[in-house]
Amino acid sequence: MEILMAFVVGILFMTATYLMLSKSLLRIIVGTGILSHGAHLLLLTMGGLKRGAAPLLGENAEAYTDPLPQALILTAIVISFGVTAFFLVLAYRAYQELGTDNLEKMRGTEGNE
């Protein structure tokens, strides 16, 4: 399973990178979203998969999966939500002001205002 996940994560990263290298602002934001999914899954995979019950003591299990990566990922999910929202509004405002979401076109307006 870990091997499979390693490849899934790799593909997520690859797609994210390709999207982030494009010119469209929206694609860049979608790219960062995918990138954070990839990073979360990578963290989870690195901690080992399915090594026991969910990390709830109520389960009374012999072994539990590693709770620490989960806590880190939970933090990361919420943070990435905040960052994505910020990016999104930035893009939205830029689009409103400049009438384009193409980064190459935006560059030209620098300094002319």
């Binding site: 690859m14 994210a16 990178t17």
Partner: peptide, 28 residues
């Protein structure tokens, strides 16, 4: 772009595989 993104993907996969295969110490 394609070359770079494939490179990134490959590196991440390799790291994930190595991280899984090299367990140097117990989980904290």
């Amino acid at each position: 772009n394609a070359v770079i993104s494939v490179g990134v993907g490959a590196i991440v996969t390799l790291i994930a595989l190595s991280a899984h295969s090299n367990k140097l110490f117990d989980s904290i």
